[in-house]
């Protein structure tokens, strides 16, 4: 049943990535990008790469989200394209 877990994770990953590209509100995009990072970390755990998963969770969900939110506050919240 291992492949079912990874299949579900990859499905959420692809849906999350498409959602990040499609959504108009950039704050929603940042939060969805954090979800993407967490799912990536979970996939890395299921592949046995704990260290990569740890780095992905800490950087992708912590630092990138924080800096992106600050960047949104400094510019504009709506996507222009």
């Amino acid at each position: 049943m291992d492949w079912m877990i990874e299949f579900t994770l990859f499905l959420i990953l692809i849906v999350g990535a498409l959602l990040v590209l499609g959504v108009r509100d950039l704050l929603v995009a940042v939060v969805t990008l954090n979800v993407f990072s967490f799912i990536t970390a979970a996939i890395m755990v299921s592949l046995g790469a704990i260290d990569v998963a740890f780095t992905e969770a800490v950087v992708g969900a912590g630092a990138v989200g924080l800096f992106s939110i600050v960047a949104i506050r400094r510019t504009s919240r709506r996507s222009e394209d």
């Binding site: 998963a53 800490v58 912590g62 924080l66």
Partner: peptide, 21 residues
């Protein structure tokens, strides 16, 4: 165990940045 300088550093920075925010 998994971890080390980079991950620990980012976690420490996250703590400080949470206070900053």
């Amino acid at each position: 165990s998994p971890g080390g300088g980079f991950q620990g550093g980012v976690l420490l920075a996250a703590g400080i940045l949470l206070l900053r925010l």
